[in-house]
Design a binder for these strands. Sequence first.
DNA 1: GTCTATATTTTGATAGAC
DNA 2: GTCTATCAAAATATAGAC
Lengths: 192, 192
Amino acid sequence: MISKDLSRKESIQRIGSNLFRKHGYTTTSMQDIASEIGIKPASLYNHIKSKHEILVHLLMQGANLFVDGMQEIKSSSLRSIEKLERLIGLHVHLSVEHTDLMALMMVEWRHLENPEREQYAALRENYEANFRNILVQAMQEGDIREIDTEIALFSILTTLQRFYSWYDKHSDLNSLDLEKHLIQCLLGGIRV
Amino acid sequence: MISKDLSRKESIQRIGSNLFRKHGYTTTSMQDIASEIGIKPASLYNHIKSKHEILVHLLMQGANLFVDGMQEIKSSSLRSIEKLERLIGLHVHLSVEHTDLMALMMVEWRHLENPEREQYAALRENYEANFRNILVQAMQEGDIREIDTEIALFSILTTLQRFYSWYDKHSDLNSLDLEKHLIQCLLGGIRV
DNA sequence: GTCTATATTTTGATAGAC
DNA sequence: GTCTATCAAAATATAGAC
């Protein structure tokens, strides 16, 4: 754990992500955030423009983590099945390191309004399209069975996207072991 | 589609489940619900006690659908691997028939307060424990590989629990085919 | 940069006429 | 059973003193 001094703005964002995650964006008040820091609600507005701005910033920050991760894996010279394994690793890594952000990305993006809403949706769809391409590629390379692509994509992505909530209850476990088991479970199947 | 006359109370619950699902429990106002029906917000209170009561009723109704389904499958004389297939079918069926309820059960239960919160959590945990038992049983019966039980349980349950959102975008597809593909994907694995 | 005071809006809910 | 009128509380945000 790197204990770096946070600017007040960073504190607000960090505490916001934690409270938004625990109680939801709408339910969390500026009062809640302020009292967690130890100042009055009005003082928050010296550092941020609005409550909504906090949410937007957090969601875009989270989305960019995936964009960057995907870019690196996509442009690598790995075999597609290995890219899939790396993608599972990316999700495990981000879930462990940015648990609150991952939770927000799943639940609170519905409070976005345009243009941010469309922008966020575009990033998400782009990520999904890249994931699909790699999955189809792996099938063509003969490393994956001929199954229903859309169902498989949905199942794998859903599991990875919700992994943060599972990790929350099992954070004592080694993340490399988790990654190994997830790869086996998602790519290897379970039936004898 | 059975077109049965709904009592006003049932209308309120139905419309509530739809709006809560689309915009979230907190964001949906009594005004929103009332105007969808064509009455004034104050009139709602002749049929329900509070906004919160609507949510509680919907969540408990949804939870009971799973309790009943699990009870039937659990007490059957099927082989465990077949029980797993029946459980997948249960989730597909409920996702198709009660899409809004399924969405609420995943997202809005956090607005429950005790004692309902604990009651709901208990039902959920009980369902999960039964699911785990059947999975372990199938392993002991030799129909499932020796994998990490907890990760496999998490992956399967998460996929099933979020299936409603995927079905929402693919509701043109035959639900029996979907069930078949999900069974293959979740139990059969995808790697060659 | 934080405070107090306050404006403004919205919301869930109640009372009572019809 | 629905309406109008209204209450009470909470929340976001601003203005201006210190």
